[in-house]
């Protein structure tokens, strides 16, 4: 009896979570233009989507920004994590708090403050401002996925490499990097995902003429809903889903189950 209740409860939760998305996915295959009735299965909205040059350009911009911002954020974040790992407890906790705040901060606040910052520096809004903004909000995710890896490492490992004749740089690339690499990869994927589906911060930092997929969808929706947007949203959802699955798969922690990324982020 109890078991059945458990299952019903779980089913309801999943239903509420995924019903809107499922609707979207179903509608993206609906041949009828209205949302009210089912006009048969079709791929034509997907076809239309891939013939729409404005969308394709937005897609290209999104991908480029996601890749570049994830790449820079991974490099900066990894270095920051290594530095934080070497700090004393007090300053490490302080840095950790500072890193956590941007993630918990309302995106609209981050977006507006970045916008104001760029204005005060007299920067022209466009590709570079969006890229800077994305790097900024991506760094904490990288730190949070690399730091647990570093903590797990035996602190003597680096010294052991030096002891055996390695220079500090050689020791880093041969001994430290391979050990924390899964963390770096999951940090990169996390950053990539975050950049890919960001709307608010991009909206405030992009300026006219530049669009990512999310901002494009927003402007298109204002003109009236076209079914292509359903298929585009569906594709974005599936991409993000796959990326998240990858992120969750990378840290194969046999020993430290607490090190999982999600828990760290909740903290």
């Amino acid at each position: 009896m109890n078991k059945i209740l458990h299952k019903i409860y779980l089913f309801l939760i999943l239903l509420f979570l995924y019903a809107p998305i499922a609707t979207l996915v179903v509608l993206s295959f609906n041949a009828s233009k209205t949302r009210a009735k089912w006009g048969g299965f079709t791929f034509k909205w997907y076809q239309a989507l891939f013939q729409n040059e404005v969308i394709l350009e937005a897609f290209y911009t999104t991908l480029l920004i996601a890749l570049l911002s994830a790449l820079f954020a991974t490099i900066i974040g990894t270095i920051a994590a290594i530095a934080m790992n070497g700090m004393k407890k007090g300053s490490k906790a302080a840095f950790m708090a500072v890193t956590n705040i941007p993630m918990l901060n309302a995106e609209i606040v981050t977006g507006i403050s970045l916008m104001l910052l760029f204005i005060s520096f007299g920067m022209r809004f466009g590709f570079s401002t969006v890229l800077f903004a994305h790097i900024t909000f991506n760094i904490p995710y990288v730190i949070l996925s690399v730091l647990p890896r570093l903590k797990q490492m035996n602190p003597s490992t680096f010294e052991a490499a030096l002891d055996l004749g390695a220079s500090p740089v050689y020791a880093f690339f041969k001994v430290i990097l391979p050990d924390i690499f899964p963390g770096i990869i999951s940090g990169f994927l996390m950053a990539f995902t975050m950049s890919l589906d960001d709307f608010i911060i991009t909206h405030f930092t992009k300026g006219p003429g530049l669009d990512t997929l999310s901002t494009k969808i927003y402007t298109e929706l204002k003109k009236g809903i076209k079914p292509e947007m359903y298929s585009l949203s569906t594709l974005i959802f599936i991409t993000v889903l796959i990326l998240l699955l990858l992120v969750n798969k990378t840290p194969k922690d046999k020993k430290n189950k607490k090190g999982s990324l999600q828990e760290e982020i909740i903290l």
């Binding site: 035996n154 490992t157 010294e159 052991a160």
Partner: peptide, 9 residues
């Protein structure tokens, strides 16, 4: 050096 916690790679 032989370290306390082995420190193998």
């Amino acid at each position: 050096t032989v370290f306390q916690k082995y420190a193998l790679f």
